[in-house]
Design a protein around this nucleic acid. Structure first.
Lengths: 344, 344
DNA sequence: TAGAACTATGATAGCGCTAACATGATAGCG
DNA sequence: CGCTATCATGTTAGCGCTATCATAGTTCTA
C-alpha cells in the first residue's frame, strides 16, 4: 500500500498557534522585521513597528520563546536552586531574586534539592539544558561533578546564603561568625551552661557552621559546648521537643542556643505552656530574625539576616554581569544583626 | 576588505556544548538512535543503549531541552501562578505541586502576580510561550483576555484554592462555606457581637468570600456583621493593629473573626502583651490552620485547609490528563476542618 | 512457506525563531 | 561629487532536537 498522496510532503504541525511568519505576512513585512519589531524596536521604523504590533493583536500571536531561545542560544531563565521550600528563609531570598529578575523580564526556574547535593547536580543539568542565563544556588557545597558543570558552563554562577570559597559570584553572610556572636552575647549575659540545639546539622550544614563558631567561643572561655541534635528540620514542634530534651539531658542548663528561630519560637511557646519562666529559669536564643520571634513575649533574642536583600543583591550582581559589565567585587557580605530581646 | 575566507560558510555557534550528534558519533549510531536511547529506552536494543549512555558520559553531554521542546512542540514545564510568595498558604500548595510533578520529571515555572490579574495575564502569555504542558493558577478570577488564552490553549488548565465555575480543572474548597462554618461556631459558642477583620479584601477576594459567608449566617441570626478592613495583607503586625482597631471602634465586641491565621495570631500575641484575657474578654478566630496557631496559648480556633494535599491532588489530576486519560471529575472539593482551640 | 507483525535502526525534514550577512536608500562630509 | 556612515529591511542558514517515514532483519501465524 502506497501513500495516498505521495506528492504531499511530510507534515508536521507544531502548536497550531500563529507564528511570526503569519504576523509578518499580516503586516506586510518579512519575518525578521517582525522579530525585530518585537525584540529590538529601535532597529525598526516607528510606522512599521506599529503595523507589526497591530498584526500581533489581530492574529493573536504569542511568541514561541522556545524557538527564540534555541535560535539565540540563550533564554531569559534564571535557575534558582534551594534546599527547601518549607523554610521561610529561602522563600525570602527567592522573593528578593524574583522581584529583581522579573522586573528585567527574566523568569525564575525554581529547583528544590531537599538538602541533597545529588539532586542539586541533577537540577543543574536540567537547568543548563534549558539554556538558563545564570544559576543561583544556596550554598557552597556541591558534588564534584556538579562543581565541574558549574565551573565550565560559562554562565554567571551565584552562590548565596553563606560566604567562602565560591565558584564565581557569592553573596551571603558568615555563619561561623554569627554563631560566635550569639555565643558571646550569651556569655556576656552571664550564662555559663549553654546548650546548642540544632536539627539535622549534616543537611543544614550552615547551622553546623554556626555551632562551630559557638563552640569556638565557648571553648575559648573555658566552657563546654554540649550539642543536642534533633532529627527533624526546623519547626515549632521540633523546638518544643528540643526544650524537653535539654531539660532532660542537662537539667542545670541556663541557656539554649537554637539553630534557628523556628526551633527557638517552638521552645518559647512550649515553655510558656509548661509555665517555665524565660529567661529566669532558662534563656532562649535563635537565629534568623523571623517576624514571629519579635512578636512573642518575651521577645526572642536572635540574629537577623537580610534575606530579601541578599536575593536582591545577588540578582543585581548577576544582571550587571549579564549586561556585560565586569563585576569587580565577586564576594559580598550582607552581614547580620544581633537582636536582643527579653528571652536572654 | 573581503572576508578572509569566502568559501567558509556562515558560522554560528550555539552553546559550544557537545550535541546529540557528537554523542551519536562517539557511540557509532545515528543521532536519532541516541535520542531514543535517552528518551525512549524501550525502543532501543539494550547493548546499543549502553553504548550511547557511555558516550554521553564520555563527551559530557547535557541534553538541550530547548531544542527538544521545539522539535516536539511540548516541554516538561508546568506553569504555576500564585498571587504571592509572602503567604505561607501558597507556598504549601506549591510544595504539593512540586513534589508530585518533580517526581514525574516535570519542572515548575513559578509566577507571582502580586494579586494583580493583569500580571497574571502577562505571565500566562509568557508561560504559553514556553510551551508549558499545563497551567495551574490560584483562583477563578482572570482578565477576559487571559480567560480567552486559557480557554483556547488546548492544555490542561487547573484552577486551585477555591471552587466554582472553572475553565477546566478545579481543585479547592468552598470559602463561603468556610466563612459560614466559623460564624456558626462563634454563634454557637454564645458570642453575639462579632467583628470580621480582613485585609485588602479586593485583592484577597477569597477572604472576601469568607466574609460573605460569615455575614450570611450573622444576618440569618438577626445579627450585624461589622467589617474592619486593614490595608496591609496578612502579617502579625497587621493582626495586632486589627485588634487595636476593633477595641477602638467596637469596644463591646465579644469576638473577632480574622480573615486568616497570620492576623489572628498577631492579635493573640498582641493581646497577650496587653494582658488581655482571651477568650474571656475577647474571643479570636482565624483561618488556615497554620502550625503557629496550634502552638499558641490559648490555641487558636481556626479552619484548616489541606493545602499541600490540594497541590498534590491538582498535580495528580493534571498528570492523569497528560497521560491521555480522561479526567471525569473535573471539580474536586478538598474540604476543610474546623479546629476548635481555646481562643473562642 | 508466504505473508503479517514486530524489532531495531536510519534518512530526512522540519519545529519557529534569530544571527549573520546582504542590499538599497538616504544622509553626511570634505 | 564620490565616498563612507547610517538606517531600514530582506535573504539565508542554521540552533539541536524529534516526528515521520523508510528499510532491513527477525519472529510469528496459518
Amino acid at each position: 500500500m502506497s501513500n495516498q498522496d505521495p506528492s504531499r510532503t511530510r507534515r508536521r504541525r507544531g502548536s497550531a498557534q500563529p507564528t511570526l511568519k503569519e504576523v509578518a505576512a499580516a503586516a506586510g513585512v518579512s519575518s525578521i522585521t517582525a522579530s525585530r519589531a518585537l525584540n529590538a524596536p529601535e532597529r525598526v521604523n516607528e510606522e512599521t513597528r506599529k503595523r507589526v504590533l497591530e498584526a500581533v493583536d489581530r492574529v493573536g500571536y504569542v511568541p514561541n520563546l522556545v524557538a527564540g531561545s534555541l535560535a539565540s542560544a540563550r533564554s531569559r531563565f534564571i535557575a534558582v536552586i534551594v534546599p527547601s521550600l518549607a523554610n521561610a528563609v529561602f522563600i525570602e531570598v527567592i522573593r528578593g531574586l524574583q522581584a529583581t529578575f522579573e522586573a528585567q523580564g527574566y523568569q525564575i526556574l525554581l529547583g528544590n534539592t531537599d538538602y541533597d547535593i545529588e539532586r542539586e547536580h541533577r537540577l543543574v543539568r536540567t537547568f543548563l539544558g534549558w539554556s538558563c542565563s545564570a544559576l543561583v544556588t544556596a550554598g557552597l557545597r556541591h558534588t564534584p561533578a556538579c562543581r565541574d558543570l558549574l565551573e565550565h558552563c560559562d554562565k554567571p554562577v551565584m552562590e548565596v546564603m553563606e560566604l567562602g570559597e565560591a565558584l564565581d559570584l557569592n553573596v551571603g553572610l558568615d555563619h561561623r561568625e554569627a554563631g560566635r556572636c550569639m555565643a558571646r552575647h550569651l556569655l556576656e549575659r552571664g550564662y555559663r551552661r549553654i546548650v546548642y540545639v540544632g536539627a539535622c546539622l549534616d543537611k543544614d550544614y550552615r547551622a553546623g557552621l554556626r555551632f562551630d563558631g559557638h563552640r569556638e567561643v565557648m571553648e575559648a572561655a573555658g566552657r563546654e559546648a554540649p550539642l543536642i541534635e534533633l532529627d527533624r528540620l526546623g519547626s515549632l514542634e521540633a523546638g518544643a521537643a528540643g526544650l524537653d530534651r535539654v531539660r532532660d539531658a542537662y537539667p542545670d542548663a541556663e541557656a539554649i542556643h537554637f539553630a534557628n528561630d523556628d526551633l527557638a519560637a517552638g521552645a518559647l511557646l512550649h515553655g510558656f505552656r509548661l509555665g517555665l519562666k524565660v529567661p529566669d529559669e532558662i534563656a532562649i536564643a535563635g537565629f534568623n530574625g523571623l517576624a514571629l520571634g519579635q512578636h512573642l513575649t518575651p521577645r526572642l533574642t536572635t540574629i537577623k539576616s537580610p534575606r530579601e536583600t541578599m536575593g536582591r543583591q545577588a540578582a543585581e550582581q548577576i544582571l550587571r554581569r549579564l549586561d556585560g559589565k565586569r563585576v569587580t567585587r565577586r564576594q559580598c557580605n550582607v552581614g547580620f544583626e544581633l537582636l536582643v530581646g527579653e528571652s536572654t
